[in-house]
Write a protein that binds this DNA or RNA. Sequence first.
DNA 1: CAGTGGTCTAGACCACAGG
DNA 2: CTGTGGTCTAGACCACTGG
Lengths: 233, 233
Amino acid sequence: MNTPSFRNWQSVQTEVLRRIHAREWIPGDLIPNEVDLALEFGCARTTVNRALRAVAETGVLDRRRKAGTRVAAQPVAKAMINIAVIRTEIEERGQKYGYQRITRNEVVPPLNISGAMNAHADRPMLHVRALHLADDTPYAFEDRWIDPVVVPDALAENFETVSANEWLLTHAPYTHGEISFAATSATIGEAAILQCLEHSALFTIDRVTWDGDAPVTKVRLLFGPGHCLRAVL
Amino acid sequence: MNTPSFRNWQSVQTEVLRRIHAREWIPGDLIPNEVDLALEFGCARTTVNRALRAVAETGVLDRRRKAGTRVAAQPVAKAMINIAVIRTEIEERGQKYGYQRITRNEVVPPLNISGAMNAHADRPMLHVRALHLADDTPYAFEDRWIDPVVVPDALAENFETVSANEWLLTHAPYTHGEISFAATSATIGEAAILQCLEHSALFTIDRVTWDGDAPVTKVRLLFGPGHCLRAVL
DNA sequence: CAGTGGTCTAGACCACAGG
DNA sequence: CTGTGGTCTAGACCACTGG
């Protein structure tokens, strides 16, 4: 067995994936430990570790101290979704970006909004509604709530030329957030804004971010009919 | 400046994130190089490297050889989506999983299917339609095409008790794939299967996988109204 | 060309959890 | 208790790319 030598972690990773693909290592199997693999591959254990860690991050391997490393029986497909600023997203597709602010108010949000943000139910918030356009046609409707206690600067901004989507990135840091994707049926008002039929199926993104315990912003993005979000596996 | 010492990469990562959050390092800024940070933090450069690499993977830092490491001006939010087997997904929510195969045929697929799979347009494929149920109510409709040349074993399987969703995981390895998310309007047939109204907005996942150049399978999953996919940021 | 991140190495110690 | 992965270290060389 004249094993070719594996001199970097990427080649070790490739070899590991090959063995799994070729069923040399069967799903559920325990594979050799790092020390043995390092010996076999003729490299340092650190290098094997780096490779196995990378594979494990994709869900193909399952690693546990003492228990060792196994080929995942039911690998969970992991897709990395990149959510960029909407303007960038449109411009990268070679389209012309357009923006229209629709409304801006300071009101007490409905309970489902303050609830989702984990915020005080009686505190007024900044409510901004706006439309993003690609090549002059409606692309996405942004319905956003901003907590003015956490982001006081937002009160001085009218969001007429800069979208909240973009402005918040540079003015409101957050520590963590939640995002969810769904399909919703266009209300008559949404249909008018997006220039589509009532009850059209709209791809929807809901996102809430916090800075520690403090709610920063909650946004719902409604994309025009036909929109889809892609990723690789 | 009595810097506490940072003895592991996680604490270095935390400190880096803190500085960005606290605006000590402004978006667009060049931050000190690894050697300097290692000196400041009192740890090895390897440790700093590990921490910065982890932060860069989340999109908060931008690293380039020679150019150095910068705080991303417009960080692209990255959400990791885990797509598990549907049965597992349902059972993990404490619901009872149910499955019904609807149809199974060997036919030449329509052009949009063979096109998406990058397959020969005139080759017959295995077409399986099935319904997944949670607590006896329709959860997702699976409409799948399988290339029998690539997965010959599939011809011997009737998919009456085991879903293709699950069977393929252990019988058809793939090297890469594409996934896309969208919202579609229920046709009358789909509405009947999912027991919802025609034109309901359905969350839809399309997935195609390949084994090298060879197309393995293409699946469209239509989820019942109200379904949503969550992730953390 | 030179400075930066990218990686490898050999060895060491540690934390966790299986048996 | 002990084997496994997780991590740190110091030093070295390399690859890329900006100036």
